[in-house]
């Protein structure tokens, strides 16, 4: 009996030590290799994500049938098309506005005009979200086999969603702009003041390092500045919802509501970098 207890105790100690050791090993690998997916991540994504994709697609199909055929046969469908058109036009309008601004400024300084290279937009579907809720991360059904690379921007026609942080052969992880670990160099469209947009809690963002002298107002649009080499210039990030009055210090603090609805995204577009367009395999 005593021997049995002792061996049980030994077994328990070995299990605890093994789990602790493995956890610390994973933490160390995580710190050391950072952005590269570990073999465990690749294996888990390869096994779990097809099931997630299956469930996600089935649910989307059920929801589509419900919306388009049972709920309202035609008007709902038309409405969806018009909404999508509207979103697409808003997206291009924003880019054109930014181009116009750029032309005006360039004209003013009698400078030469550089030509933007066309970016390619690759459609993708969401397969699954982060399960703990602490990270604002989701998985899409495009991987490096489709030409997706780390640091490519992910958008909807309404605005910026995030960037690719890890890719496996068929799936990629997207870090949302609302995650505290995300940072986007941005400018206020009206005043041209610069700052860094970072994720805050509850699905909103904040703009940091905005000059105290900035004439920022609620409702001002924030767009990506193009600095940093990840996000192309002119992508709509969000609208200022709150400006905190600050009389001391060097920077102002503003709250931003993302223009892209980050909770009910259906169609995502990955901006395949205009600087390095890989061959896209369908």
């Amino acid at each position: 009996m005593l021997k049995k207890n002792e061996s049980k105790k030994k077994h328990g100690i070995i299990t605890v030590s093994a789990f602790l050791l493995l956890s610390f090993l994973f933490l160390t690998v995580n710190i050391k290799f950072g952005y590269a997916p570990t073999f465990v991540e690749s294996i888990v994504i390869t096994i779990i994500s097809p099931f997630q994709e299956l469930v996600s697609k089935s649910l989307n199909n059920v929801s589509r049938v419900w919306k388009n055929y049972i709920f309202l046969i035609k008007s709902q469908e038309e409405n969806t098309i018009l909404k999508k058109d509207n979103e697409r036009l808003k997206f291009f309008n924003n880019i054109l506005k930014e181009r116009l601004n750029k032309f005006q400024r360039l004209e003013r300084f009698s400078d030469f005009i550089t030509q933007d290279r066309e970016s390619k937009l690759l459609p993708a579907d969401i397969v699954g979200f982060d399960s703990t809720g602490w990270s604002k991360v989701f998985i899409i059904n495009r991987g490096f086999k489709n030409g997706i690379r780390k640091d490519m921007a992910v958008v909807t026609y309404n605005g910026l969603v995030g960037r690719i942080v890890q890719s496996t052969s068929k799936y990629s992880k997207v870090l949302l702009i609302t995650d505290p670990r995300s940072a986007v160099d941005a400018i206020i469209q009206r005043t041209r003041d610069r700052g860094i947009v970072v994720g805050a809690h509850n699905g909103i963002c904040e703009m940091k390092y905005l000059s105290i002298n900035s004439d920022v107002k609620e409702g001002d649009m924030i767009i990506s500045s193009g600095l940093g080499g990840v996000f192309q210039k002119g992508l709509s990030i969000g609208k200022i919802s709150k400006v905190y009055e600050k009389k001391i210090g060097l920077f102002r603090h503003v709250e931003i509501i993302p223009t892209a609805d980050l909770t009910t995204m259906e169609e995502l577009l990955v901006v395949v970098s205009p600087f390095e367009i890989p061959e896209v395999k369908e």
Partner: peptide, 17 residues
């Protein structure tokens, strides 16, 4: 916990621990 870590970003080892 390990599966949760793997499906998240830069969290390997946190939830499993």
């Amino acid at each position: 916990g390990l599966i949760q870590d793997a499906l998240s970003f830069k969290q390997m080892g946190i939830n499993s621990l």
